[in-house]
Design a binder for these strands. Structure first.
Lengths: 154, 154
DNA sequence: TACTAGATTATAATTGTTATCGTTTGGTTA
DNA sequence: TAACCAAACGATAACAATTATAATCTAGTA
């Protein structure tokens, strides 16, 4: 955990930015909630606990900065809010998401799975792929199980 | 063209909605610009030509309605604007997009390409897929060609 | 004709995000 | 330490996209 903060600090310094207390608090929130997909507002509320004087604009600025440095990914599931996701260190490509249309849960797929598809696209459409976004919408295993239970008790 | 409008009319009636003049004008704009990925604002401006008295809110409502009925797809490339895309009739799945990070062009891929990936995901993550969104970000063939020309002339 | 439900318009309000501006901070040099 | 400067800050205004509200209109029906 501390080592990751250190690495992020170095990344900032490398681009001649500083790891201010506000930025550190923001990064810590992201680290502590790595599993979730927090919106800027979510991050703001959580950072408030650590640094009550922080302003919303600073959180936005920090998230923007971290996105530029590719420390976080800014994602958009179409609900009108940007969400911010700490990158897996060393991951070349964006991971994928499973969005449940019943409960709204968002799970992640770390595997790439797209090598074959990308090869086809690069060749057939003569398109040089730099990154990709893949999201599946459907019913997650939890909601699936719930349905089963319901059916059993009926 | 007319037959597609008729089918959309039937879909509306089936859900007990009417094809009002405003809705028809909106659908016509979508049909006439099927290749593009229009934003609500784009649609509004185009519809204005056909029906100058239409209001922006009506366009939003109509697009929302058409989205519900799965006549159009609402997409989001992360630039803060929703875009609306007429569905291919009978297409079970969402098509994919190639977004050029140089010129911003958006091309479409109609092929599915994801059958194998979906089979893996359904099985391994026990996730019942209903739809998917796949976007590749990279350099399109046009920008690619331009680079080549530049290099040649230098 | 009067009635009713749905649709429409104009406008106000809301929401997420970004820009502005005056102030503060942290590092550097004298 | 003191003086300085650029970066970063917080509060707030501005902004753009979207949605809600309220009054009005329209089509169909009794």
């Amino acid at each position: 955990m501390e080592s990751r903060i250190d690495r992020i600090k170095k990344q900032l310094h490398g681009a001649s930015y500083k790891l201010t207390p506000q930025r550190e608090a923001t990064v810590r929130v992201l680290l502590e909630n790595e599993e979730d997909h927090l919106s800027a507002e979510d991050v703001y509320l959580l950072v408030k606990n650590k640094a009550p004087d922080i302003g919303l604009a600073t959180v936005y600025r920090t998230l923007e900065l971290l996105t530029e440095l590719k420390v976080v990914d800014k994602i958009n599931f179409g609900d009108g809010v940007s969400r911010y996701d700490l990158r897996q260190e060393g991951a070349a490509h964006f991971h994928h998401h499973l969005v449940c249309i019943e409960c709204g849960a968002v799970d992640e797929i770390q595997e790439d799975l797209l090598e074959d598809v990308e090869a086809i696209v690069e060749k057939r459409w003569n398109f040089q792929i730099k990154d990709h976004r893949l999201t599946f919408h459907g019913i997650c295993w939890r909601c699936h199980d719930n349905h089963d239970e319901k059916e059993e008790s009926e």
